[in-house]
Design a protein around this nucleic acid. Structure first.
Length: 210
DNA sequence: CGACCGATCGTCT
DNA sequence: GACGATCGGTCGA
């Protein structure tokens, strides 16, 4: 595997969260805790544009104990529990008091696949199953990410994003509306979701046809 | 294959 | 006390 270069603060502090969501396609999400290292290449993201975005937890400047970390400077993890079951991993972006975030929805496993399957309760004899890291809940489970990690700095060693130098052509990144945000009115139509063209790990493929 | 439904619980009203 | 930025199983066509 090529040398990994951890993304620095400047990547996350940029002001355009949609651009950051697009730039994250092809980057590598790494977790290293419990003496287990797992990594996966990000193939699907969604941008949440803060106070003006009706789909965002920070819409209208809403600020609660749970969402407080969204108001931190870029490069922190915001993880919350969805439907009481799924731990969804978000990357906080922009500067302090600007609650932008990118939801990572799917990735392609690279390192530690055995450990990922163990975390997901799969039999290691099974051939690699797409659903292992397809969809935000599955991805977090495979990488061992839970709400307990919410607030950690992505410049540390527990959870971080890195580049292995892979360049993804603009033409290989497709934008679509976000998944499961019908409640957001006009904002539900924004093409803030990005997927790596043709990658099998992408979730909610129905939307592909749009 | 598509539609539907139950699981499950922290968070916010 | 209601409700999710979901998932996986089941059921019917």
């Amino acid at each position: 595997m090529a040398t990994l270069k951890k993304l620095g603060r400047s990547f996350y502090r940029r002001k355009n969260v949609v651009e950051i969501a697009r730039d994250l396609i092809g980057k590598i999400l790494v977790t290293g805790f419990d003496e287990i290292l797992t990594s996966a290449r990000i193939v699907e993201t969604e941008a949440y544009a803060g106070v003006i975005d009706r789909a965002s937890h920070a819409h209208g400047g809403r600020r609660t104990k749970r969402t407080e970390i969204m108001y931190a400077k870029g490069g922190h993890a915001y993880i919350y529990l969805c439907y009481g079951v799924h731990h969804l991993f978000n990357i906080v972006t922009n500067g302090e008091d600007v609650p932008h975030a990118v939801l990572v929805r799917a990735a392609e496993p690279l390192e530690g696949i055995e450990q990922m399957m163990e975390r997901a309760g799969r039999k290691s004899s099974n051939k690699t199953d797409i659903s292992l890291t397809s969809g935000p809940g599955n991805l977090s489970r495979a990488l061992g990410i839970s709400t307990h990690h919410s607030g950690i700095d992505l410049l540390g060693e527990e959870i971080f994003i890195a580049s292995d130098g892979l360049r993804v052509a603009d033409s290989d990144i497709i934008s679509t509306p976000r998944i499961g945000v019908e409640y957001a009115g006009e904002d539900a139509m924004l093409r803030y979701r990005f997927i790596l063209r043709g990658n099998p790990y992408i979730s909610a493929k129905k939307i592909f046809k749009i």
